[in-house]
Simulated scan of single mutants.
Amino acid sequence: MSGVHAHIADAIKAPDLVRLGANLYVARFETMKVYSTLVAVERLLASGRVQPGATLIDSSSGIYAYALALACHKFGLHCRIVGSKTVDRTLMTQLRILGATIEQVEPQATLKLDQSLRVARIHELLAADPSLHWMQQYHDDIHYDGYAPVAAAIADALGCEALSIVGGIGSGCSTGGLARALRERDDAVELIGVQPFGSLTFGCQHLEDPGIIIAGIGSSIPFRNVRHALYDQVHWVSFDYGLAGSVALLREHAVFAGLSTGCCYLVAAREAALHPERKLLFVAADTGHRYVDGVFAHYQDALDPRALAPTPIASLDELALPWSAMAWRRRDYAPAHPHSP
């Protein structure tokens, strides 16, 4: 029977492409990192870097943990996760039933402390058991490869001419992998990255968001997988503005997605209005379920996104809440603290 998948991971790995407006589209994932993780694990096994029955380990704030647990389940491997404080009870329960060993670091006041503590714990575990394979989603560029099939689907559906991709930067692999693959067809494909305030990746670590750091798209430690020279624009979006975008996306288009998606929708919708000649596709990395209490429960207080606009900046010195936008122009950038754990 055609269309029958051998494993649930294969059924949910690809995004649904939905048209939201004349030139506005969303690539809506159930959980974004499944595709790239399946490809990464398959290639690690094929190359012999990972042996059958091995244990894979990594740090995660949520989405990657689920993707790695699914990949390990499919390929008969063991999974170990050092989790962030943002891993909720629903996901924690799923991970444990899937057979993953998961521990959460103690809640920290900042993302920097949380990420640093998670990485330090992984080093402790590796020292105690060198047979563990650290997946290093932040640093191993094998995670780029899984986005090529997604890029091919986008190109087939929309074409690459006058195409702009908007997505949360995070580890750099999703937006970077899409851009790299799409630019093999058309180098003019535009990449717009979205960051939270407080993130080191594009030099905003000095500005903390009074709401909350947006888990998954920011960083307090350098990620080698972020290739700064791939990005044409960078937008920094606050929690309150991201909340407004998430609520508006559900209200106006019935798309229930996470907080980073709200940030991306805000940026993409504005770019689509400013540039009707271009096609704007933004990435919805996950569903909104784990954001019900922290985001959607406050829908009555959400700002009207039509009244929100970014402050254009020419240098990082001008960064300011709640929304800043900069023409990055595909240039390199070295974070102030180049050492990465």
Rank of each mutant, 00 (worst) to 15 (best):
A11V: 07
I12A: 10
K13Y: 05
A14N: 12
A14R: 02
A14S: 13
A14M: 15
A14H: 07
A14P: 03
A14K: 02
P15V: 13
P15K: 14
P15G: 06
L17Q: 01
V18Y: 05
L20I: 05
L20C: 07
G21Y: 10
A22Q: 11
L24A: 05
L24N: 00
Y25P: 03
Y25N: 05
Y25L: 06
Y25M: 04
Y25Q: 06
V26D: 00
A27D: 02
R28F: 01
F29D: 10
F29N: 09
E30G: 09
E30C: 08
E30S: 11
T31F: 04
T31I: 15
M32T: 05
M32G: 04
K33E: 11
V34Q: 09
S36G: 09
S36N: 10
T37L: 06
T37D: 02
T37Y: 03
L38T: 04
L38M: 12
A40H: 07
A40F: 12
V41D: 03
V41P: 10
E42P: 11
L44A: 14
A46V: 09
A46M: 02
A46K: 08
S47K: 11
S47W: 14
S47F: 13
R49S: 13
R49H: 05
R49G: 01
V50L: 06
V50A: 04
Q51E: 14
Q51L: 07
Q51M: 10
P52A: 00
P52W: 00
P52D: 00
P52M: 00
P52S: 00
A54Y: 10
A54T: 12
T55L: 03
T55P: 06
T55S: 12
I57R: 05
I57E: 09
S59P: 00
S59N: 14
S60F: 06
S60R: 04
G62N: 10
G62R: 08
I63Y: 11
I63L: 08
Y64M: 07
Y64P: 00
A65D: 03
Y66L: 11
Y66K: 10
A67E: 07
A67K: 14
L68D: 01
L68C: 06
A69R: 03
A69L: 05
L70E: 01
L70D: 04
L70M: 15
A71L: 12
A71V: 05
C72G: 11
C72T: 08
H73R: 11
K74D: 00
K74V: 01
G76T: 06
G76M: 07
L77M: 07
L77H: 05
L77S: 04
L77F: 12
C79D: 04
R80Q: 15
R80G: 02
I81R: 04
V82H: 01
V82D: 01
G83M: 02
S84L: 10
K85N: 10
T86N: 09
V87Y: 01
V87A: 07
D88Y: 03
D88I: 03
R89I: 15
R89N: 13
R89A: 15
L91R: 15
M92W: 09
M92E: 14
L95I: 05
R96F: 00
I97A: 10
I97G: 10
L98R: 05
L98K: 04
G99I: 06
A100W: 01
T101L: 15
T101K: 13
T101E: 14
T101F: 13
T101S: 11
Q104T: 12
E106T: 15
P107C: 03
P107V: 08
Q108T: 08
A109E: 15
L111A: 12
L111W: 13
